[in-house]
Amino acid sequence: MTYDMDQIVELKRIAPNLSQAEEGGFSYIRIAGYSLPEGCMPATCDLLLCPQPRDNYQSRLFFPSQITGCVARNWNGNIRVLGENWFAFSWATKPNLRLAEMLLVHINGLR
């Protein structure tokens, strides 16, 4: 999957360390060392953003573990993607968001 360069540039202003990979027809953006909102544990972690519809969501954001110290959410765990286990909470986003907005809408689910 290819992304508009201006969207990547915009996303990099929030999350500079980006890389991408594909699996099973889905495209994923790995966001390395992202700082989560205050109080979250862990405070920093890698994230995996699936910016296309998946699992009945317009997009999904995966975390390496269930995040604590934030609002309690409905978490699903040990979802295997790209050879690693990930966690995600139920959080619907609108379609056609720009990548940066998509990430922030997901992250706001932790507040």
Partner: peptide
């Protein structure tokens, strides 16, 4: 299969964006 091309086998490789 277009979903799992041979290029994607083995440990996942990420491309820097």
């Amino acid at each position: 299969c277009a979903h799992y091309p041979l290029s994607q086998i083995g440990a996942p490789t990420y491309t820097t964006m």
